[in-house]
Amino acid sequence: MTLSTAIAGADAVASRLKGPQGPKPRKRFSRRNIFIYGTLIVVALYYALPLYVMIVTSLKGMPEIRLGNIFAPPVEITFEPWVKAWSEACTGLNCEGLSRGFWNSVRITVPSVFLSIAIASVNGYALANWKFKGAEAFFTILIFGAFIPYQVMLYPIVIILREIGLYGTLWGLVLVHSIFGMPILTLLFRNYFTSLPEELFKAARVDGARFWGIYFRIMLPMSLPIFVVAMIIQVTGIWNDFLFGVVYTKPDTYPMTVQLNNIVNSVQGVKEYNVNMAATILTGLVPLTIYFVSGKLFVRGIAAGAVKG
């Protein structure tokens, strides 16, 4: 720091010392605070608005929607749209509502989450603690693979699944989710296991534990938080997937998102906006619940899972 800036700095310090200084004894209604909180409240309203509109629309009857404005709260609350969305709404192919899609999604998500986490956690553990020649090379390919647009690999996978007889089945989709979840989850677990003290691993080896023994007895019990984070990433990611669902399953095994899109964007019949919104909320309910319940862990998950795009 040159002398002149030092003096200028000293001057500034002196001038600050006169006035109210520092962030601590701040006035509650300073212009700065009004600006910050004002902006944030407006922004928060903007972000919250669509959820609000979804909810109020889903609770109105169609006549009320046609007459009123979308922001107005329902005059007469009705749950009929929800019932209809769940069990009667038509997709153009069938009129079974979202329920079938919901159960398909459950049957896809549960095994996908378990399989992908099981594979990735063991991979990450091997990469972190049992490095072997070439492991890093495969890992690098895996990470770069995360950036390849899915469209590039869609078709080869169709052929592979057809060859092994899984095309169009739930298990085929489970496999696809496990494959595409692998880069980010492996990275997540590798980094986590690397951050654990290496001496614990060494101590366990001296104590005679082997690969699986150390994984199950030492690593797993210490890693519950990261498993929760991985589950959050996977449940939301797989539940929200549309592309793989539409490519690798058939109409009777379509997941909820595909079913939802087919219901709402069906060109047949009269548009029932309230039913559509009820269906939309129903589809978003699982990830939203996870989001609001998990809080900070979700943030940690998306910060790690951001690479997935």
């Binding site: 003290p197 060494k202 101590a203 366990a204 001296v206 005679g208 030492i218 210490m222």
Partner: peptide, 20 residues
């Protein structure tokens, strides 16, 4: 030989006790 088959015991800097 594997570490456990060498007749050695090891005490680490962090002690590395299994926390669970």
């Amino acid at each position: 030989a594997e570490p456990s088959q060498r007749g050695i015991g090891m005490v680490f800097q962090s002690y590395a006790l299994y926390p669970q």
